[in-house]
Design a protein around this nucleic acid. Sequence first.
DNA 1: ATGTCCCTATGTTAGGGA
Length: 260
Amino acid sequence: MAITVASWNVNSIKARIGHVAAWLRSAAPDVLCLQELKTIADSFPRLEVEAAGYRAALVGQKAYNGVAILVREGLDFTVTAHALPGDPADEQARYVEAEVGPVRIASIYLPNGNPAPGPKFDYKLAWMARLAAHARRLLATEAPIVLAGDYNVCPEDRDAYDPKGLAEDALLRPESRAAFRGILHQGYTDAFRALHPRRVAYTYWDYFQNAWAQDRGLRIDHLLLSPRAAETLAACDIDRAPRDKPQASDHTPIWCRLDL
DNA sequence: ATGTCCCTATGTTAGGGA
């Protein structure tokens, strides 16, 4: 079987439900991981998602954060985690994980970390250490794994429009990149980079300074595949079309197809 | 510092976050 898994930071699901429903209908992924819902679960637009043919597992929070996994009707899924393990005091809604058919899928909203240095950057690095520990434990499961989301990490200089100007930004700092590489070193594969080794492509463009029109963006949304998932990777791309719409999110979807 | 967009609440404007 083939399964397509996508990830999209929507910057408020209530502001973006029209775009999301339209993309579900046109792109028709089997799974869509969402980040930055910016709402509690009770206010999540479940009816619109169901009308598009999907069911949702989500972890919400008022005004900030919030993650979801949307699963196409007919695909079985079971939620396996409502939070990233490792800190019971952490109440930020940044992680949800589910078994979808034969695949384990996580929707991740990694902390931004700016300004760096500072407490927010410390929180980002601590969160990344917890993610690395959890990613390692997940490798012991039999299922192929897709860790999908907004990592708020630009892995390499070519993933940013102005790497020198942004060198001190929490998204490019060496500590953030080292933590990201640590997960890769466990055996996870950056799906986009694996299939497009030299391509300059972004998933996020700031609302400021007309960044989209000038293609001044960053590649910070990633699909990390366990070895068992990576060996089935058939396609991966970034769909720029939603970013060009009126009232767009500042991020656009990235997707991959696994031929299991 | 600034730019823009989205959220909430000391709520129709300001401040925080990204």
